[in-house]
Amino acid sequence: MALKPEAIIIKRKRRGKAHAAHGGAWKVAFADFTLAMMAFFMVLWIIQIADQQERTVIAQHIQGDLFESGSINPFDLSSSPSMLDFEGQMTIQEAVIPTASTGAGIRGPALHNQIPEGTKDAKAGRGPELNAMVPGKFETQAQLELLAREIDRVIEDVSMTANVKLQVVPQGVRILMHDNINRFMFTRGSAEMKPYFEDLLMALGPVLSKVENKMSISGHTDSTPFAGKTFTNWELSSKRALLARRVLEYAGVENNQVIQVTGMADQAPYVVHDPAAAANRRIEMIIMTTDAETQLRQMTGLPVEKPAPSKELIDAKKLAEANQPRSRYPESWTKQ
């Protein structure tokens, strides 16, 4: 008996697609997207609450170009000003701070008239501090840079570096104290000085009182006008400059050391492309060299002061007069 072959049953199953392994890459991407959106909306919020002036300053901070090369009255400072680098970079001239070596013969580039007087702990000089600033006149580029560094130390001590700009220019040392978003030097629209600005001037007084150079002080405002006509930016800038001079005098600066106080209103903006910028509201002081002082005196009709002769010159003149040739015979004999 023959066996019947068994039927072969073939079952067809639909294959499912393999699922990809679940990773965390999408979480990282989503977190980056969320962070970017949060930063975007924060920028929109800041722009919404800030006025046009603050927006301009923010844009300048982002671009890294907050300060521009402006001009100062009555001199033109656009002729290659020497910007001091207080971060330890090389300057255009050698510093005048003496070396730590001992002995007057190896005191380095220190000038003889800038050596401290005294007899205690003498090193390169004759004073207790090797790098002390000696009262006197500052004329050369090296001397002006030394003075600017002393002023910069004072500015750092009162935490006002964000509001003060220092420049060494051919006319002397320019000290520019300006407003920014966080701090105003004066109450807006008035000559009421803020306490921290008064502290800055009081701290600068002892240093400036050691300087025999004449000083010029000028007040500046932004381009925002006043509603009335009796009180304008001219009066406001003048009052602020006069108040700054008064505080400096109270801090130790001699009355005759300030040779000029002017109010410039908005005629000399520091940020030229934005006359309404906060940095345009400022007080500028320039510690003038003798040449700059002479130029200012000639421009304003002030008498030009001649420098007093030094003691060495007076002694040399006396010796020369005493060493005149004398006649062999008495004067009475020559008249006969």
Rank of each mutant, 00 (worst) to 15 (best):
L176P: 13
L176M: 07
M177Q: 11
M177P: 07
H178W: 05
H178G: 10
H178R: 07
H178Y: 06
D179H: 11
D179P: 14
D179G: 04
D179K: 03
D179I: 04
D179V: 07
D179C: 12
D179F: 09
N180P: 06
N180M: 03
N180I: 04
I181K: 02
I181S: 10
I181V: 13
N182M: 07
N182V: 11
N182G: 09
N182C: 09
N182Y: 11
N182E: 15
N182R: 02
N182H: 08
R183D: 13
R183N: 15
R183L: 08
F184M: 04
F184E: 10
F184R: 09
F184W: 07
F184G: 03
M185F: 14
F186C: 01
F186P: 03
F186S: 03
F186Q: 03
T187L: 02
R188K: 11
R188E: 14
R188H: 07
G189W: 04
G189D: 03
G189R: 00
S190K: 00
S190F: 01
S190C: 02
S190N: 05
S190E: 14
A191S: 11
A191N: 07
A191L: 04
A191G: 02
A191P: 03
A191K: 00
E192H: 05
E192N: 03
E192W: 04
E192C: 00
M193S: 10
M193E: 10
M193N: 07
M193V: 12
M193I: 09
K194D: 09
K194E: 13
K194R: 10
K194I: 05
Y196F: 13
Y196G: 08
Y196N: 13
F197T: 05
F197A: 08
F197K: 01
F197Y: 13
F197R: 00
F197S: 08
E198S: 03
E198D: 04
E198C: 06
D199C: 05
D199S: 04
D199F: 07
D199V: 01
L200Q: 04
L200H: 06
L200W: 11
L200A: 04
L201W: 07
M202G: 12
M202K: 14
M202N: 14
M202I: 12
M202V: 13
A203I: 09
A203D: 13
A203Y: 10
A203G: 10
A203K: 07
L204P: 14
L204G: 01
L204E: 05
L204M: 14
G205F: 08
G205A: 01
G205H: 03
P206L: 03
P206K: 00
V207D: 09
V207W: 10
V207C: 14
V207S: 14
V207K: 14
L208Y: 06
L208P: 02
L208R: 00
L208Q: 06
L208M: 10
S209R: 04
S209F: 05
S209V: 05
S209I: 02
K210T: 14
K210L: 15
K210H: 15
V211R: 09
V211G: 13
V211D: 15
V211C: 11
